[in-house]
Design a protein around this nucleic acid. Structure first.
Length: 279
DNA sequence: AACAATGTTCAGTC
DNA sequence: GGACTGAACATTGT
């Protein structure tokens, strides 16, 4: 499910939908499109175009222009726990399909490149006058599409944050370091898996109070985080992390062989090495 | 059947 | 107001 790396992948797919005239938006799912009412997003975008696709952390948004060429509203897209993006080209058929997000959550695996045959999981569809479309496909329905997302509420992107920003934002307070990494207003883009992977690589106990970390530990943590994030983008998702396959019962640490331990930190299921991450 | 799931938000308490 | 906690949200898979 989508964390920063999967969302970056999805953003690149959204770019396939740029500069194509919007003929309509199916925004009838009032939960996914909250707080809008059906028809509002359709009304705001119809006749216009998406002209740029941005991302900060796990939030994507598109700049738009209206039919007259004026600046239009920003369209926010969030994949939630299991959303994916599918874009079809002008022919609208499967041969022109681009898929974005985490392939692991797509529903039924089909022939390579084909989209799962679950039209009821299309939560929002933007149709273009060339016959193609962009859809948010999300079986869990926790994804979101709405106008003017509050991007300012997010901290710096986890792949871009500077050393000084990281020290100042992450290295304070009494909350567990893992909870800090997961706080999107502190730092945007880290999800449960990337947090476990990063802390394992840095050999830090997830429950350690964030303010307790030394400057050296914070600097190292940031280096590890950026490396793990970029590696996940390059390799196609957070599930390619080294410790991810060992987040399960009776597993042992792939580095030292000690038992992996499970608990709840920051409200999320957490796995760590009982030997190397115990300080 | 009960529980967990890679996310966000909101009510409530210091 | 900020820091923090825990439950709720909608749905599927085990």
């Amino acid at each position: 499910m989508p964390e920063l790396p999967e969302v970056e992948n999805a953003r690149q797919v959204v770019e396939k939908a740029l500069d194509r005239t919007i003929s309509g938006v199916d925004d009838t799912d009032e939960y996914v499109c909250r707080p809008h009412h059906p028809g509002e997003i359709d009304q705001a975008l119809k006749g216009g175009r998406l002209v740029a696709a941005h991302r900060r952390g796990k939030t994507m948004w598109c700049d738009t222009v209206t039919a007259d060429g004026d600046e239009g509203p920003h369209l926010g897209i969030h994949l939630g726990m299991g959303g994916r993006i599918f874009v079809t080209g002008p022919t609208g058929d499967a041969s022109s399909l681009y898929a974005g997000g985490d392939p692991h959550v797509g529903g039924m695996p089909k022939k390579p490149g084909e989209r799962p045959d679950k039209p009821e999981w299309d939560r929002v569809t933007i149709t273009f006058d060339d016959g193609g479309a962009l859809r948010l496909f999300d079986k869990r329905r926790l994804g979101r599409v709405h106008l003017e997302p509050a991007v300012e509420a997010l901290g710096p992107d986890a792949a871009e944050i500077t050393r000084d920003e990281f020290r100042a934002r992450v290295g304070k307070g009494i909350v567990a370091i893992k909870a800090k990494l997961l706080d999107q207003s502190v730092l945007a883009g880290v999800g449960n898996l990337l947090a476990d992977e990063t802390l394992w690589q840095a050999k830090l106990r997830p429950s350690r109070p964030a303010g307790e970390l030394s400057t050296d530990e914070l600097d190292d943590l940031r280096r590890v985080l950026r490396r793990a994030t970029r590696a996940a983008i390059a390799q196609g998702g957070v599930h390619t992390g080294e410790v991810i396959p060992y987040r399960k019962k009776d597993a042992t640490c792939p580095r030292c062989g000690a038992p992996m331990e499970r608990g709840v930190v920051g409200g999320r299921t957490t796995w760590w090495c009982s030997a190397e991450q115990s300080d």
